[in-house]
């Protein structure tokens, strides 16, 4: 004997959200799905092609190359930014007037529009007039990010670390400052070394915010477009052409809507899959 009341009118309350989500996500996504299975010859003439574009993209060496570049880039910046961010957060003052000074300094890079960051670094790293480029060259390094792939990678990574480590710092700092004083007192009583304090108190307590930091940095760096586009335009050659830059080239440069749509969907699935993997791995112990 179920006492549940059935009232279908409640759907009306959900309707606005459904409409909103439909217009800003589902419908555009379905358009992409639509393109991904069709061939177009202009004048809005479409032919159904099935999974042909998907096969093509998955077997394309160009896609493999940019995916590899993308994975390399994302791994490098995660390996640098996460430990660096945690280390900076741990050395930041916990109380006193310097707290707000540090927080403001840390937040500054995050407030700069992405294309401005790209433009800044573009000039900053110019080998003949930029402060960084000129300094490196006068120190004897052969540095020219417009010509040498290695210099270009170095600059793109340095720029990303400069721009985004702050985000990790702020999240990690929030985690560290929420640890009650009693933990540090107990650790002193137990005679714990400073490394033991980091290992057994600070890192475990930061775990949740670090998971978020890793996910955010992973997704953002995997989708990075504006900054390297402004800085190197994907070059020299194709050496800094990451997935999104490549995608835009195919979709808007060559106007290959079918392969571009298929590539977007594969791209989307990769991000979704990797995020799920990260999250599951990091939260594995929590459920016990």
């Amino acid at each position: 004997m179920s006492r549940k009341t059935t009232n279908q009118k409640a759907w009306l309350f959900v309707l606005p959200v459904v409409v909103l989500v439909a217009f800003n996500a589902l419908i555009p996504l379905m358009t992409v799905v639509n393109y991904s299975v069709q061939e177009t010859f202009g004048n809005n003439v479409f032919f159904f092609e099935g999974v042909k574009w998907f096969e093509e993209v998955l077997h394309s060496e160009r896609f493999h190359a940019s995916l590899l570049r993308q994975l390399t880039f994302t791994s490098i910046i995660l390996i640098i930014e996460i430990p660096l961010g945690v280390a900076i957060a741990l050395t930041m003052p916990r109380k006193g007037p310097w707290v707000s000074v540090c927080l403001v300094l840390m937040a500054l890079p995050l407030l700069i529009p992405w294309n401005v960051v790209g433009a800044m670094w573009n000039i900053f790293a110019l080998p003949d007039i930029g402060l960084l480029g000129k300094t490196l060259n006068s120190m004897g390094f052969d540095y020219d990010y417009t010509q040498q792939p290695l210099s270009a990678w170095f600059t793109v990574i340095l720029m990303d670390v400069w721009h985004w480590t702050s985000l990790v710092v702020l999240l990690a700092y929030a985690g560290v400052s929420s640890i009650p004083e009693a933990y540090y007192q107990a650790a002193k009583i137990d005679g714990a070394s400073s490394w033991a304090i980091i290992r057994y108190i600070e890192l475990p307590k930061m775990k949740r915010v670090l998971t978020i930091a890793i996910l955010l940095r992973f997704m953002d760096s995997f989708m990075i477009y504006t900054e390297p586009f402004v800085l190197t335009g994907g070059g020299p050659g194709n050496t800094t052409t990451f997935l999104s830059i490549d995608l835009v080239k195919i979709a808007l440069g060559q106007f290959d809507l079918g392969p571009a749509a298929a590539m977007s969907l594969i791209y989307f699935m990769i991000i979704l899959l990797l995020c799920w993997l990260f999250y599951t791995l990091m939260m594995k112990d929590e459920e016990k």
């Binding site: 009650p180 009693a182 933990y183 007192q185 107990a186 009583i189 005679g191 714990a192 057994y200 475990p204």
Partner: peptide
């Protein structure tokens, strides 16, 4: 003298455990 050299044990009002151990 710092705490860890004093040979004093102290138990606090709210439980402090090392979560990962």
């Amino acid at each position: 003298m710092p705490t860890d050299q004093r040979n004093i044990a102290q138990v606090f009002q709210f439980p402090v455990v090392y979560d990962t151990m």
